[in-house]
Structures are given as C-alpha cells and as structure tokens.
Design a protein around this nucleic acid. Structure first.
Lengths: 211, 211
DNA sequence: AAAGCTTGTTCTCTATTTGTTCTTATTATA
DNA sequence: TATAATAAGAACAAATAGAGAACAAGCTTT
C-alpha cells in the first residue's frame, strides 16, 4: 500500500514548518498562516504540497476541517511551552514580500540568554548558502536584534526592493547601499538606499544536527 | 473517545479568557461578562463557541447553571504545572586533563528544544579551529548528547590519552580509532582504541555575535 | 407571591474565513 | 526538448463567526 514518496525541497520545508509550529503551539496553523510564514501568496499551491505530505504519510488527511492539519507522529504536539520570558518570536523562513513585523507572535522559541541582547530580538531560519564563509549554513537559525540602522560591516537582515528579506554584510555610502554575501562565489549587490530597509542585526546563530 | 477537536482562533481566545479569569477570580464569569471582555454583542454566538470547548473536553458541560462554566481539571493542572526543565549543564571550555563528569553542575544554560535530544545533554565551548569546515568556529558552543559509543562519521567529543577533550569526526576499526578534524589544513590522528573514550556526540551548535 | 430582571439556551439569518479544486504561467531539472 | 516542481489566482462549498429574537429557568425586588 505504501508507495515511496520522497519529499521535494518545498515539501520538506513545509513539513519542517509544521513540526516547528507544533512544538510551539497546541493548535494547528491555518493555510493562510502557513502561507505568511513561508512567504507564499496562494493557499491553492500550498494545499497541493500538503496533499503530497498526506500521500507521503507524514500528515493525516483533514477533511475540510479548519486547523485540521495533524502530523501522523504526534511527537511533541502535547508539549505545551508556557515557560518563562526567555522566548522570542519565531518568524519562520526568511520571508519574501513581507516586513517581518506582520507575523509576530505566531510562535515562540526558547533562547539561551547568551545569544540575545537586552533589546527586542526574533528568530529566522536561513535558506541558501549566502553566508557560508561566516559559518552560517542552510537551515541554521539566526537571532536578529530588531533595529533600523547598522554600521558598515555589520551583518544585517534587510528588506530589499520591498520584495525579500536577506541576510548580508552591509556597506553604506551616502548614495549607495552595498549588500555583500559571505560567500566567495557570490557577488555584492548595489542598491539605492531607499530600496533597502534594515530589519535588524545579527546577534546569534544556532544549528541542529539531529537526524 | 477523543476525536480531534482543534480550537479555532475564536475558541482559543475564549479559552484563554477563561483560564485567565480563573486565575484571578474564584467564581466563573457569566456569558455577558465574557461578551464584554471579548467585545462580542451576542450571547448566542458565544454560547455556540463554548459548546465547542465542551466537545473538545476543555470545559465541563454546565446544564443551565448560572456561572456554571468550569474548566476540566486535568487540562487545567497540566497547563499550570508544565515546568519542564530546559536547562542543561555547561561544562566550560573543552577541558584538558579531565573527564567531563567531574565538573558537572557548575552552571546551567537554557536551550531551545530543537537543539537537544531527549537524552542527557550538556554544553561545551569550543577552542580552536579544528572544525571550521563544518561551520563550528572558535568560541562556539556545542550541545553534546552524553554517550559512550558512536558510529563512523559521527562528530564526537572524546577524551584522548586521558589528557584532553576534543571534538572530531570518528572512524573506528577493530584495532584503530582515527579522529579526523574538519579542517583541510589539519591531519587525522590515529589512536589505540583504548586511549579514546567517547564522551558524547554532537547534536547542536550555537554562536554569539554580541560584542 | 407576583412582577421584573438576568442568565443560559436555542433558533434563524447573514457575513467572513477557510479548505478545496481548477486553470494557467513560470522555473528547474533530466 | 520534455517532465516535474513551484507558484499565483479564480471560483466554490463547507465551516466558522456574529447579530439578534425568542423562551424557560433562576434570581431579586417589591
């Protein structure tokens, strides 16, 4: 009965989001919430991906039930986390098309005090290899201190062209902003300062080696 | 008995209101009071929501009794008493000359659940560049699951020659143990298996960029 | 005890949200 | 070039949400 259903990259990404969400919140997310969390705009396409997760046996079929997405292996779904104040918002994958604030309070993550500042911080998950020369890899988490300014050489999360959020090294001159990847095989990108909105600066990084 | 009853956004909001109310007041709120508290105008609609909470097993059925809304005791107790300890021992710099146990319980560190396993874990701080090709840098923290065995290719913390603890990739043959640094400019080291005591395997990594 | 009020409950009607299905277009990948 | 993966959006039905009317049972006041 069980065919072999390898996950595509996107399906794996969505599954990770679901696992993560279940660790933080007791109720399942809505399709729209997942869209926002992953930077998608169409519930329709997302639904198709989730159908694949059902076929792969990772997600139980949810018959029109709202918030009906359940993982088949209900790992930590019961582990409610209402612990102290050392949690900070997890804003999902580095998200396209949205200033980060819009999805605050979706879920929260526990953080060692050593990895954050006294100011407001949040967590993003990194996609891509643009920072490997700094030891930040695909799927790592980064802790960002919320801020709208930075000094040259800082690693920042920025909204570029009102379109996508990236993690880069910043160099600013009066009439030009340069975003430099920490990856020798990638080129710095030049922007009009008006098209680069700084969202915060890098203060910490985490990586899981589990499975 | 228990079907799956995910809470909708409104139901969750109402349940939160009830939990909150119970922490401050001994008697249950009236439907109208909840309406006022949540900005609703119809007791009728509210009642329907509470019916769902009853079906979900979070609220006891109250047959026409005024101020009869009670939370089911089991859920209430778990909601309060979920103080799982998410801290693990910090054993300091990767330490020379000592098996790791001796300095346990010096201090503890808060860890996100995503970075540890269910088993016993502890934190070490890395010195040196022997793992930079895996993105583990000088002064990073690593989370180690306590264990005395590993399979080939695992990244392990090991006590070598009863002298120092290092973080390396392990390759074991019946009569030889090879510890391989993840650093192209360093050479693998060969040992008699008796001189290598595995202390644990790598499950997580953290880095602070503050100052 | 009777009148007046509040409360829980049930019902109908309407508006919004959500899951689902389709169609179409674009990008990767073999 | 062909095939799969990804994405956006339109359209639809079911689930959910809100308002209000109506009613019986419990309180309060007279």
């Amino acid at each position: 009965m069980s065919d072999y259903h390898p996950l595509t990259r996107k399906q794996h990404e969505i599954y990770q989001f679901l696992v993560n969400h279940y660790q933080q919140s007791e109720s399942a997310p809505t399709l729209s919430e997942i869209c926002i969390g992953l930077g998608l705009k169409s519930r329709g396409s997302l639904h198709k991906h989730i159908q694949h997760l059902v076929e792969a046996g990772l997600v139980e079929p949810s018959n029109r039930q709202q918030r009906g997405i359940r993982l088949t292996t209900p790992k930590l779904s019961t582990a409610i986390d209402l612990s102290t104040d050392e949690t900070i918002p997890y804003l999902g994958k580095i998200a396209a098309g949205q200033p980060l604030e819009v999805m605050a309070n979706f879920s929260r993550i526990t953080i060692p005090t050593q990895l954050k500042t006294k100011n407001e911080c949040y967590v993003l998950q990194v996609t891509g290899d643009s920072m490997i020369d700094l030891g930040i890899y695909d799927n790592d988490w980064v802790i960002i201190e919320k801020r709208n300014y930075a000094k040259n050489g800082d690693v920042i999360a920025a909204l570029v062209n009102n379109d996508e959020v990236t993690l880069k090294i910043i160099e600013q001159t009066p009439n030009k902003t340069i975003l430099i990847p920490a990856n020798k095989s990638m080129q710095p990108m030049h922007f009009d300062p008006n098209n680069v909105q700084i969202q915060g600066i890098l203060v910490g990084q985490m990586r899981s080696y589990i499975h």
